[in-house]
Amino acid sequence: MLVKPGWLGTHLLAVLALAVCLVAGYWQFVRAQEPSREVVDNPVERLSQAQPLDEALEPGAYMSERKGNRAVRATGVYAPGEQRLAPALSPEGEKGYYVVAPLVTGQDTAIAVSRGWLPQDTADSAQNVAPPPEGEVTVTGWLLPPDKAEDGYVPMDVPEGHVARIAPSLLVNQWPYRLYEGYVVLGEQRPQDPALGGSAAELRQIPPPDPPKGTVWDWRNVSYAAQWVVFGSAVVVFWGSLVRRALRENGSAEGGGSEGDDGGRAPSADGGGDGDQVSVART
């Protein structure tokens, strides 16, 4: 009975539904192990692979996290007197500042460039930090999305010449330029920046950190994967209940047919059947 055409369609439908549940559950499980979309998870590109900034990002256009750590190259002129300090932690956890300046790449268009990092006790204001070089420069570095409020550390106040974080949404209020959505972490510059060096009073180059290599679990996707497993189990239980009920009904039908055949047998030739009925009546 279970191999008839109608049942073969039911079996195929159950297999397909189970396969969909397993594939969807596995896909959600894999997604649960991926970093959040709000985290830059691309490897830091080599500066030798740098591409022109305009090919990687357009001024004012939205920048996704997937474009982070991309090596880019931009040519322009640093705007004088527009340098800002943004609070930031060093890789060792020491408090300090990123020195940010606008590199004017076109008419009323600029990209924020993080020139380097200074310890907190060596920079009182942006005016005390060595200015960027004059004239046309070519900057090669890594493109990063705007810093979020939770990045680095939150300062108690933001004095003049400072900015809370490197974000064009904040810098646009201080610079008279149309800004790119992201900013560039300086890697190389021609001509070289004289402020870069190894002493405490000079800027320290800090490239972007590598993306996290550990597994970052997204428990929402884990719950989705568990739901698909439950759906797959329900498919198996439902299919099993259909098969068991069909077998039970089929067995009952066969049993009822056999009893009907026995009760319909013709009486024996010697009339024993009639004699029995008469005896029962008399009794």
Rank of each mutant, 00 (worst) to 15 (best):
G6T: 08
G6D: 07
A14P: 11
L16M: 15
L18R: 14
G25R: 09
R31Q: 13
A32M: 14
Q33T: 15
D41S: 15
N42E: 12
P43D: 12
E45K: 07
S48V: 05
D54T: 03
S64E: 09
R66I: 11
N69R: 07
A74C: 07
V77L: 01
P80Q: 04
L85M: 01
A86N: 04
A88K: 03
G93I: 12
L103A: 05
V104I: 11
T105Q: 03
A110C: 00
I111P: 02
S114H: 08
Q120C: 01
D121W: 02
T122A: 06
A123Q: 05
N128E: 02
G135D: 07
P159W: 00
V172S: 10
N173D: 14
Q174S: 15
E181G: 12
V184P: 08
V185F: 00
P208H: 03
D210L: 05
V216R: 09
V216H: 06
W217S: 03
N221A: 15
Q227I: 00
V237N: 04
F238Y: 03
L242F: 04
R245V: 08
G251E: 08
A253R: 13
G260A: 12
D261Y: 14
G264V: 01
R265P: 01
G273N: 06
G275E: 13
A281Q: 03
